[in-house]
Design a protein around this nucleic acid. Structure first.
Lengths: 111, 111
DNA sequence: ACCATACATGTACATATGTTCATGTGTTGA
DNA sequence: TCAACACATGAACATATGTACATGTATGGT
């Protein structure tokens, strides 16, 4: 499979959206169903500001949608393809982690 | 699906390896089979130094393996799971690109 | 009208990341 | 042994990225 530069850039930018702990947790949580920002904040344990910034990014990239409900804004995954991609990515990535020297920062829970 | 911080960090770091155009192209090329560094350089059109650096990263993360053959060093994907992950990631990511405002990073618009 | 709630946005900043340039290391052939 | 080839590595650098802090905006209750 050879990817031309444009396709690679496009796909990479989408993958980039899944490639950070905070966004991955947000997206994984949203797989359970639509959630308000407040619920997401609780689910991922980040500052509200940080969550909003990441949601904005995900929204700009078309991975999530938002809808106002009263004072709340409810976010949801764009579609089932994304949900499937997340599930498989997590599944495969965890599988790949078997017996890895992993000196790359896959740790440090705090921050 | 709720991911704890440690799992999210771990999976995210793996996904990060796929989330850059250069590495994605390298990995996609390697899906066709083992290749020497020189062949990879030709395939992805990057400087040899840049390719070596990325290969080193991929190797440290356990995504690729290398074997010396004469003056050449031949790289290959770690296993079929990775190959499958790449294929699906590309496939899904391209599908997600349909009708997206995609104001993020360099790519061609379709709207 | 006022205020609390819920979320968004601007700014700043420390850190991470990818590439290039220069140089080092290992291997083959003459 | 020497030269070229193939690749790795170190350093420097510009840029991208994620977060916190401060503040702005919209909604609902009283």
């Amino acid at each position: 499979m050879r990817l031309d530069a444009a396709t690679a850039a496009s796909v990479a930018s989408t993958l980039q959206a899944l490639a950070t702990p905070s966004r991955l947790r947000i997206l994984a949580a949203l797989r359970e169903g639509p959630m308000s920002v407040g619920e997401i904040v609780t689910a991922v344990d980040l500052e509200q500001s940080a969550v909003s910034h990441q949601l904005r990014l995900l929204r700009t990239m078309g991975l999530v949608e938002s809808e106002r409900q009263g004072r709340h804004v409810v976010y949801s995954l764009f579609d089932d393809h994304l949900s499937a991609l997340i599930e498989q990515a997590v599944h495969h990535a965890e599988h790949l982690r078997v017996g890895i020297s992993d000196r790359a920062r896959g740790d440090s829970p705090d921050r």
